[in-house]
Design a protein around this nucleic acid. Structure first.
Length: 271
DNA sequence: ATAATATGGTGAT
DNA sequence: TCACCCTATTATC
C-alpha cells in the first residue's frame, strides 16, 4: 500500500523499533544475500524517506559509508513480528532481526546499498516532498503552471511532486473540483498552491492513520459527522477512487487512463 | 489450477 | 505507449 505516507510511516516505525539496536540481517529468499552479509551486525542509525523512497542509514562495524535504499514499488511490503520471529513466510528479500522486533521485507522494486553519490542521484530526480518539514512548494507550483501536460499526469510524476500516487491523485483532483485532464498551464497559481497545501494535509493524515482517508470528517455527504477520521468505514474514506458513484453527489464516476494508470473523476463536480 | 488485480517505476520502441 | 520487473491475495474456472 505504498504512496508517500506509507513510506514515511515506515521510517518512523523502523526508527522506533530498531534504532540503535544491533541487527541480525539476512536474506531468507537469497536475492539480497550479499547486502545482508555486509549489513549483518550493524545498527540502525537513521531511517528517513523522500517521497516513496526509504533510506536506512546503518552503522556497520567495519563502516563503509553505505546505506540501504528501498523502494516498495507496487507490491513491496514490510511485515513486523516479535523477536524471535517465526520462519519467514513467502519470499522475504530481507530480514532485520532486532532484540525486540523483527521486520521482513518482501517484493521491493529496489533494495540496494548506495553510497553518497547513489543517494544524490536518486534525490536529484525527485521533486519536493510534501511530507518533509518546511518544504518549499515553489518548484511544484512552477512546474505545474508551466506544463502542457495534464494535472493528472503531473501529480504522478515524482520529479514534479514526490510521494503522490494513484489514489491521492484522483482524490486531490476531486477535492479541488478539477478534471484530471486539465493542463497544468491552465491552472491558477493559487489553485496549484492550494493543491499543495491540501496534499500536505492529506498525506499527514495518511501517516497518522496508516491509511488513505480523503473525505472530510464534517463533509455533508456523511450522515453523521465524525470527530475523527480514524474509524471511517471503508466506503466513506474516499470520494471517487475505484468507486462506482461519487461519494458526495452520487453521480456515476468516470474513469480513464492517464500516465498508464486508471484515474477516477466525478463528471458533475470536476471541470 | 489459473487468472486478474494492486496505492510503482524503468527502459526500449 | 508498451513490456516488463517485483509478490500476495482474491476471483474465477
Amino acid at each position: 500500500m505504498p504512496e508517500g505516507h506509507t513510506i514515511h510511516r515506515l521510517a518512523r516505525e523502523l526508527r522506533r523499533d530498531l534504532r540503535g539496536r544491533t541487527l541480525e540481517v539476512s536474506s531468507p529468499q537469497g536475492r539480497f544475500a550479499h547486502g545482508a552479509e555486509v549489513l549483518d551486525g550493524a545498527a540502525l542509525a537513521k531511517a528517513w524517506a523522500h517521497g516513496k523512497h526509504l533510506f536506512l542509514e546503518l552503522d556497520p562495524p567495519e563502516a563503509p559509508p553505505e546505506r540501504l535504499h528501498i523502494h516498495l514499488g507496487l507490491f513491496g511490503k514490510f511485515r513486523r513480528r516479535a523477536t524471535p520471529a517465526p520462519e519467514p513466510y513467502g519470499a522475504v528479500r530481507l530480514r532485520f532481526a532486532g532484540p525486540e522486533w523483527t521486520w521482513d521485507l518482501s517484493g521491493p522494486t529496489a533494495c540496494e546499498l548506495l553510497d553518497d553519490d547513489g543517494r544524490d542521484r536518486i534525490l536529484a530526480r525527485l521533486g519536493p516532498d510534501p511530507l518533509r518539514p518546511r518544504t518549499d512548494p515553489e518548484p511544484f507550483i512552477s512546474a505545474v503552471t508551466r506544463s502542457k501536460r495534464s494535472i493528472g499526469v503531473l501529480l504522478m510524476d515524482q520529479s514534479v511532486i514526490a510521494g503522490v500516487g494513484n489514489v491521492y491523485r484522483s482524490e486531490l483532483c476531486f477535492r479541488h473540483g478539477i478534471d484530471p485532464r486539465r493542463r497544468g498551464v491552465d491552472l491558477d497559481r493559487d489553485t496549484v498552491a492550494a493543491m499543495w497545501d491540501d496534499t500536505v494535509a492529506l498525506l499527514t493524515v495518511g501517516v497518522r492513520l496508516g491509511r488513505i482517508v480523503t473525505v472530510e470528517p464534517d463533509d455533508p455527504c456523511l450522515e453523521t459527522p465524525r470527530t475523527t477520521m480514524a474509524k471511517l468505514p471503508r466506503a466513506d474514506r474516499l470520494y471517487v477512487y475505484r468507486r462506482q458513484h461519487c461519494r458526495r453527489c452520487d453521480a456515476p464516476v468516470e474513469w480513464f487512463d492517464l500516465a498508464n494508470r486508471r484515474v477516477y473523476a466525478c463528471p458533475v463536480e470536476q471541470h
